[in-house]
Amino acid sequence: MSWIRREWTPASADEWTREDWITIVVSPIAYMLLMIGVALSMLLLPVGYLVLAAGVLATGFMHWVIDPKLKVISSEYEKRQREYLEEVERKTRWEENDG
């Protein structure tokens, strides 16, 4: 699926893109399908198995879409985290007041 981007640079991964919006749409649907699917499957209703399978597929698809991007965001952000932590600490201890 060429319309789903799988390779990211740190700068491009930081942007909100089509992959994020696909995840934003699929994620609640996956929750609904899993919730209803588990209940109906426990009652051994055939429609429950179908709904649950759809929920599992939606969950897998969502992770497939967003995971490469999240990996790049995370690894890039970790490099800068220490600097941000120091800044937050200074602000809490009133060592810097930019207001």
Partner: peptide
């Protein structure tokens, strides 16, 4: 279900704030 979107939006933003 608010976590469905939050996990990929506000969670990401809040984690990056390191608050």
């Amino acid at each position: 279900g608010w976590c469905a979107i939050s996990a990929f939006v506000s969670t990401r933003i809040f984690r990056r704030s390191v608050a």
